[in-house]
Amino acid sequence: MSDAVTPLPKAALVEVGSGLAAESARFAARGWMPGTAGNLSVTLGREPLRLAVTASGLDKGELTPADIVIVDERGDSVLGEGGSEQRPSAEAGLHARIARVTGAGAVIHVHALAAVTAAHVWPDGVVLSDLEMLKGIGHAAHGETVTIPVIENGQDMTVLGDAFEARYVRPCEGANDVPALIVASHGIYAWGRDLRQARWHLELTEALLQIALVTR
Rank of each mutant, 00 (worst) to 15 (best):
A4K: 15
A4Y: 11
T6Q: 15
P7N: 12
L8C: 11
P9R: 07
K10F: 11
A12N: 05
A12S: 10
L13I: 06
E15Y: 01
E15I: 01
R26Y: 15
R26T: 13
R26A: 09
F27P: 03
W32Y: 13
G35C: 11
N39T: 03
S41R: 08
T43C: 04
T43M: 05
E47R: 14
P48S: 02
R50S: 05
V53P: 00
V53W: 06
S56H: 02
L58Y: 04
E62Y: 08
P65D: 02
D67K: 04
V69K: 02
I70N: 01
I70R: 04
I70D: 03
E73M: 01
E73P: 00
R74F: 07
R74E: 03
R74S: 07
L79Y: 03
E81Q: 06
E81F: 07
R87F: 03
R87W: 00
S89P: 07
A90Q: 03
E91P: 00
R97Y: 00
R97L: 04
R100L: 13
T102C: 10
G103P: 02
G105E: 08
A119I: 11
H120C: 12
M133W: 14
G136T: 12
I137K: 09
A140F: 13
H142L: 13
H142R: 11
G143A: 08
T145N: 04
T147Q: 15
I148Y: 11
P149F: 13
D156F: 00
M157K: 07
T158C: 00
G161P: 05
A163T: 03
F164I: 03
F164V: 10
E165P: 06
R170L: 11
R170P: 00
E173P: 00
D177N: 15
D177C: 12
V178F: 09
P179K: 12
L181N: 01
S185C: 08
S185N: 15
G187W: 11
A190Q: 05
W191P: 01
R193I: 09
W200Y: 09
H201S: 08
L204M: 10
L204D: 00
A207L: 09
L208Y: 05
I211F: 10
I211N: 09
T215L: 14
